[in-house]
Nucleic acid binder design. Structure first.
Lengths: 215, 215
DNA sequence: GTGAATATGTGAAAAATATCACGACTTATC
DNA sequence: GATAAGTCGTGATATTTTTCACATATTCAC
């Protein structure tokens, strides 16, 4: 809430910066320049400096940035200290990939429950996350505010409605369906087929430019 | 190559438009307005009209767009008639999700081969796609120009190098690693952990605005 | 200390993207 | 056919994002 004057483009890069700073610290590096960081994350160094500058003067001229200080700052900014609970809907291959991925390690998010329509999956667990039948969604969801949707497109609307009426405010939607939600619910779409098609389109129509990094 | 004057933001939306037009045709609709389309794909109607206008006057004032005509136009524009072969590297949960997803149905892309380091997977196939051992990459890859990377981050650099030296020009990178490639190779990063973190960040810091659709 | 090298932070400019708003044309209705 | 309603295509404008380029400050080597 503090300053939401931070451009969205910047906000989207913060987790990326955070992870690389984390890597640097693990490697024992104590300082880093915007140029080095730029090479690592493939973002223009001026953009990085600009991004950081929205939070104040975090670096030192002629020196660069102190890794530990910067990391500490971002930890607070990105709320790395409080864990956000997440629910996963749809335990197919994609859903399973999420469950096996240990988000908590580098992230402030944790998948606390998963749901699937297949009764054979109910009662089991993957990656330590219990899987419930989708019919139990309302009773098992608790106070979770964020959900990952990895179900068939056909069911997206119905499940979304149920999630929203249980108070979910953020949805990471992997289905091709463009779901409708109230204004106070945020949806990020990640459409794998479209990403692939867009890549192919760029390859054919935007020949060898000096740029990468479109996404 | 024709006109690469089409803005990249527009180009990224084309596959989305294409898919929804396809749905409309299947539903038997013959005409559609930018307003209707807008509601379906959650993109401002003026933006849609602007996007379309880069390709000329595709619609009719007072009428809207003819679904069949528009679809035919995009089919050509998006090269839906020629199939692009794709290789998949890394047959874990995420990779398997891709193999089971039938891209060819609505898309102009086809995964023709997959590779994994696990010898138990070599020789098998998933979704009709043969899986080879990663050691056979060079001999089995053939003339494939696009690859999907669903492997552990640690191996990203080495595999990328091998792909690039075999002539791959486009990589859809799902690893958290930011890979380095020559200027004529295009990489799109999709970083699942970062997407989730960004969503959480937006939820906490950008309270209930009237906008959705950040991604 | 001193000079060279390094790197930030930012005003200003550029580029990219999104939106407004309206003239022009089409369709539908009576 | 005349009127009303609907919708595109686009000039103009607004907004967002990126990049340039440099004054200013710090570090390093000797």
């Amino acid at each position: 809430m503090e300053q939401n004057k931070i451009p969205q483009a910047t906000a989207k890069r913060l987790p990326l910066y955070y992870r690389f700073l984390n890597n640097l610290q693990i490697q024992g590096k104590t300082r880093v320049s915007s140029k080095e960081l730029s090479e690592a994350v493939k973002v223009d160094s001026a953009t990085i400096r600009r991004d950081f500058s929205y939070f104040g003067a975090l670096g030192k001229k002629g020196y660069g940035y102190n890794v530990e200080y910067l990391l500490g700052f971002f930890r607070k900014t990105l709320d790395q200290d409080e864990l956000t609970d997440v629910a996963l809907i749809g335990v197919g291959n994609l859903g399973t990939a999420f469950l096996n991925y240990n988000f908590t390690k580098n992230n402030n998010t944790k998948i606390v429950c998963a749901f699937d329509a297949d009764p054979n999956k109910s009662g089991t667990e993957i990656g330590g996350v219990p899987i419930y039948h989708i019919d139990e969604l309302e009773e098992r969801l608790g106070n979770v505010k964020v959900a990952i949707l990895t179900i068939p497109a056909m069911e997206a609307d119905r499940i979304t409605e149920r999630l929203v009426s249980k108070g979910v405010k953020g949805i990471l939607n992997f289905t091709p369906a463009r779901i409708s939600v109230p204004d106070d619910v945020r949806v990020h779409h990640i459409d794998l087929a479209i990403e692939l098609q867009a890549l192919v389109y760029f390859l054919k129509h935007y020949p060898l430019e000096m740029k990468e990094e479109i996404l």
